[in-house]
Simulated assay, not measured.
Amino acid sequence: MTSWRDVHAGAPEFARRVQSLFDAHKHKTIATLRADGSPRISGIECTFADGELTFGSMPNARKGSDLRRDPRFALHTATVDPVDGAEAEWPGEAKIAGRAVHSGSISDGPDSDLFRADITEVVLTHLNDAATLLVIEWWTPAHGLNVVERE
């Protein structure tokens, strides 16, 4: 199992930038798989604490049912458009993919299911300092951090 702690240990600066994008907004988007295999997009909140990435699902919610049946997920930060004329200041966007591990109930607040992320990939997309190239950075447990730039 690959936790957020492992991502941070493998690429601390990268992990810090990814987490700052996730922490910048309360609401994120999660993709899960329906019983027929088609994708489902849902709003969600997540937490980075004690080296783990966790998120919850209210009782009888479809996303929780999806994750208990097929744990694969993709989590995406809030999408923010670059500002015309200030593209170099665009913070970018981040994605985390993996498998959701059901970890019991959330004790604070309404009864909900708690999931921990078993991370398979983390991606950070942003512009270079001159705002002339798209920079894609990604980390996997097997290959560590990689970077590619595109026009």
Rank of each mutant, 00 (worst) to 15 (best):
H8C: 04
H8W: 03
P12R: 08
P12K: 04
P12Y: 09
A15C: 05
A15F: 05
R16W: 07
R17L: 12
S20K: 14
L21M: 14
F22C: 05
A24T: 03
H25S: 14
H27F: 13
K28W: 03
K28I: 03
T29D: 06
A31W: 02
T32A: 00
T32H: 00
L33Q: 02
R34W: 00
A35P: 06
A35L: 09
D36R: 01
S38E: 06
S38D: 05
S38N: 12
P39Q: 00
P39F: 00
I44F: 02
I44T: 03
E45V: 03
T47P: 09
A49R: 14
D50E: 10
T54H: 07
S57V: 10
M58S: 11
A61W: 14
A61D: 12
R62I: 09
L67D: 01
R72K: 11
R72E: 04
R72W: 00
A74C: 09
L75V: 05
L75Q: 03
L75S: 03
D81F: 08
D81W: 13
D81S: 14
D81P: 07
V83T: 12
D84F: 11
D84G: 15
G85E: 09
E87S: 02
E87I: 08
A88L: 01
W90E: 09
W90M: 09
P91S: 13
G92Y: 07
G92A: 05
E93I: 05
K95V: 11
I96K: 01
I96P: 00
A97C: 03
A97P: 05
G98A: 08
G98K: 12
R99Q: 07
H102G: 08
H102K: 11
H102T: 02
G104R: 03
S105K: 11
D108S: 09
G109V: 07
P110F: 07
P110D: 02
P110K: 09
D111W: 13
D111F: 11
F115E: 07
A117V: 10
A117F: 11
D118H: 08
D118Q: 11
V123N: 04
T125V: 05
L127S: 14
N128D: 15
N128C: 02
D129T: 07
A130K: 08
A131P: 03
L133G: 01
L133Y: 11
L134A: 08
V135P: 03
I136C: 11
I136R: 15
E137I: 05
E137V: 12
W138D: 13
T140I: 09
T140V: 04
P141E: 05
H143N: 06
H143E: 14
G144H: 02
V148M: 04
E149G: 05
R150W: 14
R150V: 01
